[in-house]
Design a protein around this nucleic acid. Structure first.
Lengths: 157, 157
DNA sequence: CCAATTCCTACTAAATACCTAGGTTTATTA
DNA sequence: TAATAAACCTAGGTATTTAGTAGGAATTGG
C-alpha cells in the first residue's frame, strides 16, 4: 500500500509513529495551553490519530513526568512546564528510546568487545552527536512559534 | 540476551547489521587492496561474520557497482575505485535504503498531504541534513587511515 | 573433470511497529 | 446517588523487518 516502487530497500534509521506522534502531541498541548485540561479525544481528532493509540503514547509522556493529568470527567492533560523546557530530543528519547545509531553507544547496555579496534565506532559517535545536537536544539516552543508564523503568512479557515 | 535492563524501550533510529557489516566489508577490502581477489570466506573469517549472510550483503555492494567480482575458483572481489571514492553514506544508502528519518522526506515516495502545515517537518529536514553531512564526510580511505594509525600506536600481534 | 568460488532464491524464527479491544478506576455533574 | 466522562491498564493481533540458514546453479582455474 505504501511501497509501490520496486522491491527491496525501504530504509531504516526511521523515527517511528510513536515518536512523531509524541512530538505532535506536545506541540498540540503547547498551542492549546490555556490552563485547563485537554482531552486525548480532542488531540486525536485534531491530529487525525487513533484515540486508543494516542492514549498509549501520552501515557509514556506522562510517566516521563512531562504532563500533568487530571482523571475523571472533564479531566485531561496539560503541560507541566513551559514549552521552552521540552526539546524534541527529550520527547523522542522517552518514546523511542536511545537515539544512538548503534547499540555499542548506548549508555548502560552494549560495550562490544571490539571497541578499541573498531574504526567505524568513531563515525557512529559523530553521527550520534550530530543527531543529538539537532533534536536537542529545537524546543516545543520553537515549533509553536513556527506554527503561529505560518498562520500569519497564510491565514486560512 | 542483549536487553537485560528493564522491559520496554529498546531504541529505534538504528543502523542494522546489514549497513554496519557493509561498511566493515568495504574497509576490509580497502585494507587488503593488493590488486588480487579477496574471497568472501576470508572477509567473513576476519570480521567474524556469517559467510552466507555476508554473501548477500556483498551482493548489494556489487549490484551498486562498488566492486569488481571474479567468478570461479580463485575468484573474489576487489574495490572498483579508490577508497577515497566511497563514503560511508554511499555504503549505508545502498544497503539500508534512504537515511531520511521520516518517509515524507524520501525522494520519490512520500509527500504526505500535511506538508505545508507540518512544523515538525523542518526538524526532520535538519536531522536528515545533519545525518548526511556526517556519513558523507567520511570515506573508506579515512577509516583505513585511522586503522593504520591505531596499529602504530598500539602494535599488537 | 574437480574443486573453489560467485551467484541466486527461498525459507524461518524472532522481534518490532502500529494499532484494536476491552476493561478498571476516578471524578464530575445531573 | 446514578450516570457519564474521562484517564488508566493490559492483552492481544496483523504485517513487516531483521538476521540469518539452507541449498543449490553457474562459472572458472588447475
Amino acid at each position: 500500500m505504501q511501497c509501490r516502487g520496486g522491491g527491496g530497500m525501504r530504509g531504516s534509521m526511521k523515527i517511528s509513529t510513536r515518536g512523531r506522534y509524541a512530538v505532535r502531541v506536545m506541540l498540540d498541548l503547547a498551542l492549546h495551553n490555556t490552563g485547563d485540561c485537554i482531552k486525548v479525544k480532542d488531540i486525536a481528532a485534531r491530529q487525525g490519530i487513533s484515540e486508543k493509540y494516542l492514549e498509549q503514547i501520552i501515557a509514556l509522556l506522562n510517566k516521563a513526568g512531562f504532563l500533568q493529568s487530571v482523571r475523571g470527567a472533564q479531566g485531561g492533560y496539560r503541560l507541566l512546564r513551559a514549552p521552552e523546557e521540552y526539546t524534541v530530543g527529550m520527547i523522542l528519547r522517552t518514546t523511542e528510546g536511545s537515539l544512538a545509531p548503534v547499540a555499542c553507544l548506548e549508555e548502560d547496555t552494549g560495550e562490544c568487545n571490539r571497541v578499541d579496534t573498531c574504526e567505524t565506532l568513531q563515525v557512529w559517535r559523530e553521527l550520534y552527536d550530530a543527531i543529538n545536537r539537532v533534536v536537542d536544539g529545537v524546543s516545543v516552543a520553537d515549533l509553536a512559534r513556527q506554527h503561529r508564523r505560518h498562520l500569519e503568512e497564510a491565514p486560512e479557515s
